[in-house]
């Protein structure tokens, strides 16, 4: 439905003034808040930016199943276990919605998988941190999903229709993720001294990586300005980060847990919480593949892909045989 017509897009030589006029018409549509749909003309750079962003987003959902999946067999109660399974299934589903949206831009899913498994594609840095205790499952739901929601709600209004529609679906489902995480933190924070300590330890380890999820500071963000003009992005990294901090600090106070930042303070003049410096070296190291779990995560994905090869082959063989039988029946 999408890919056949795309091969010609942007690849035929077009006179410069015609290309400029097309780009101007495209920007006018964006400025008028029109949605761009798969078969519409779009600048090649818009297409490539979206392919990169949506596929990275999809990979993040898929790799994001691993840290939490680590605790499914050890969830403390049957209720927690059922909830965690449902949440991890949602993450898988979110990955599928997003791969499906990316494919409308003319990239094949197999190609995206290959990019993930070979290490060529990036995914969110946060999933390269380990889940050491049960409280980490709570901290991930509360902080990591909280940060993700902050990032994702504006994408529901993204100029590219299929991405925007996938995000609407995802955001509806994320809300339960964050609430179940906060509930875990609340239970631990009101529990025994050991449980409180476990909750505090999880907050200590997940706070800064969550803050870094919003990406580099605006001054260093390579893709931001163009993405804002194209309405792929609606708010800058620093704006979203500040929003997240402002809503999350009072939640930590409610839990009576300490945010691991001695410089954190309320700025009366700005009406925002101010935080201490972010360790961007850590962020860059994780992005470059040197976080605590980068290698483990990719190995887990590759092992899953390879272990599933026989299932894919068997399904394809079954489909081929059914098709051949169907052909025999209709020929008879």
């Amino acid at each position: 439905m999408y890919t056949q017509a795309l091969d010609s897009h942007g690849r035929e030589p077009v006179p410069a003034e015609e290309a400029a006029a097309a780009a101007a018409r495209f920007q006018a549509r964006i400025d008028a808040e029109e949605k761009i749909e798969p078969k519409d003309w779009m600048p090649e750079a818009y297409r490539q930016t979206l392919i990169r962003q949506i596929s990275q987003h999809a990979h993040s959902e898929i790799v994001g199943m691993l840290p939490e999946g680590n605790w499914i067999t050890r969830a403390p109660t049957l209720r927690r276990k059922a909830v965690l399974i449902a949440k991890v299934q949602d993450e898988g589903g979110h990955g599928m919605y997003l791969y499906s949206a990316a494919e409308t831009l003319g990239i094949e899913r197999a190609q995206m998988f290959t990019q993930l498994l070979s290490g060529a594609a990036k995914y969110s840095s946060i999933f390269n941190y380990p889940t050491l205790t049960w409280a980490d499952v709570g901290a991930i739901g509360w902080l990591v999903d909280g940060a993700a929601i902050m990032n994702q709600i504006p994408i529901c209004r993204c100029s590219y229709g299929p991405y925007a529609r996938a995000m609407v679906r995802i955001c509806k489902e994320e809300s339960f993720h964050q609430r179940q995480g906060f509930e875990i933190m609340l239970t631990l924070a009101r529990g025994s001294a050991a449980q409180r300590a476990m909750a505090q330890d999880a907050l200590d380890r997940w706070w800064w990586p969550s803050i870094m999820m919003f990406g580099p500071p605006d001054a260093d963000s390579r893709h931001s300005a163009q993405s804002m003009r194209w309405k792929i992005k609606r708010f800058s990294n620093d704006e979203l980060r500040q929003k997240f901090i402002d809503v999350t600090v009072p939640q930590a106070q409610f839990l009576e847990l300490a945010i691991p930042d001695p410089l954190l303070r309320w700025d009366e003049a700005l009406q925002h919480f101010a935080i201490g410096p972010i360790d961007w070296n850590e962020f860059q190291a994780v992005l470059k593949g040197n976080g605590p779990c980068n290698r483990e995560r990719l190995e887990a994905r590759r092992a899953a892909y390879e272990a599933g090869a026989w299932v894919r082959e068997a399904a394809a063989a079954h489909a081929a045989r059914q098709a051949a039988r169907g052909a025999e029946v209709s020929a008879a």
């Binding site: 949602d90 589903g93 599928m96 489902e173 394809a316 079954h318």
Partner: peptide
């Protein structure tokens, strides 16, 4: 609502069930 990859139509229905109707 979107799309799924599947070896055949039956599997496509099952994948669509898992991906698009969890609630």
């Amino acid at each position: 609502v979107g799309s799924v990859h599947a070896a055949d139509a039956r599997m496509a229905i099952e994948h669509a069930r898992d991906v698009y109707t969890r609630r």
